[in-house]
């Protein structure tokens, strides 16, 4: 077993050395393709972080009818207090809403200061507990209250959150599609590189078959060569993306902090990092296996 492993590693090294240029070209192609994919992942990770930051600040504001009864007001309060997903309930009466409004806008407009009637409704401002289901719980409560008595309207920025969520779903599908297309392309590129590697060692492999080498002993070094190409390419791609990440961080630190509201610019998350490496292994494996099998089937019994 040890001698098989040593032989395999030695043969793989010799193969790579013999086809250095083609090997490097293939690794570079994998690196470019995975860099493109990785940049999409980077964008996805950061938009996701942004969505998460924004959704943390989402609160549900329930505007009440002016003529709402005290009983209904108490019933609503009880309903909110009993909801285990709600973190805090804050009641703003019509008077305090008007007071706040005036204190904010009076300096800017004399019209507001001189206004006698109060056009603002009373409201409940609800903060929900943190968690992945926060938006779901908000939506549930909104659905429950939609046709309810005493409620004028509800506001929690649903439209833009929905649009953003839909965009994230689109982005995920887009990444999958781009990843799929790049993946097929890379399989073909690695397959051709291995084909060249086989071609350059054709006489040797023919002899190996003739003297009774097993298919395994021929396949394993070539598969390893493909896998090294895949992993090497992904490794370089991750390095390049990290550089881009650092560059953006250093250059746009101030603007980013204001966009992300204090949160840091994300690198590719673990949930994308490992699949990227795995994809490199699989692409290298499948690409080389296609060429090896083609060769062995044509060579063994022509």
């Amino acid at each position: 077993m040890v001698s098989f492993l040593a032989n395999t590693l030695r043969t793989t090294g010799l193969n790579i050395k013999a086809n250095r240029q083609v090997f490097m070209l293939s690794v570079a192609t994998v690196a470019v393709a995975f860099s493109i994919l990785g940049l999409f992942f980077l964008v996805h990770a950061n938009l996701n972080a942004l969505l998460s930051t924004w959704s943390k600040q989402v609160q549900l504001v329930i505007y009440l009818d002016d003529g709402i009864s005290n009983t209904r007001l108490k019933a609503l309060k009880k309903l909110f207090d009993d909801n285990e997903h709600i973190d805090s309930v804050h009641f703003i009466s019509r008077d305090s809403a008007w007071k706040n409004f005036k204190s904010t806008f009076a300096e800017k407009s004399g019209f507001v200061a001189g206004l006698d009637l109060n056009p603002l409704p009373a409201s409940y401002s609800l903060r929900f507990k943190e968690g992945l289901d926060r938006l779901k719980h908000i939506r549930q409560l909104v659905d429950e209250l939609r046709e309810g008595e005493g409620i004028e309207s509800m506001e929690y920025g649903e439209k833009w959150i929905s649009k953003f969520e839909n965009f994230m779903i689109f982005l995920r599908f887009f990444i999958l599609a781009v990843g799929g297309i790049l993946g097929v392309g890379l399989v073909l590129i690695i397959s051709n590189t291995i084909k060249l590697s086989i071609f350059s060692r054709r006489e040797e492999i023919e002899l190996m078959l003739l003297v009774g080498a097993t298919h395994r002993s021929i396949k394993v070094p070539l598969i390893l060569e493909g896998v090294v190409q895949g992993i090497g390419g992904v490794g370089i791609a991750l390095g390049l993306i990290k550089l881009v990440h650092l560059y953006i961080k250093l250059q746009f630190q101030g603007s980013l902090e204001s966009i992300f509201r204090g949160a840091d610019l994300q690198f590719i998350t673990q949930s994308f990092l490992w699949p990227m490496l795995l994809a490199g292994v699989i692409i290298g494996w499948v690409g080389s296996l296609i060429s090896i099998n083609q060769f062995l089937h044509s060579e063994d019994r022509r």
């Binding site: 006489e203 023919e206 002899l207 078959l209 003739l210 009774g212 089937h297 019994r301």
Partner: peptide
């Protein structure tokens, strides 16, 4: 099968007109 041809080939030594040396 192609995968098992090595059993047969280890019992046979083949010499060619063009030597087939590396």
């Amino acid at each position: 099968s192609e995968e098992n041809l090595f059993f047969l080939r280890r019992d046979i030594g083949v010499v060619f007109q063009d030597y087939k040396l590396l």
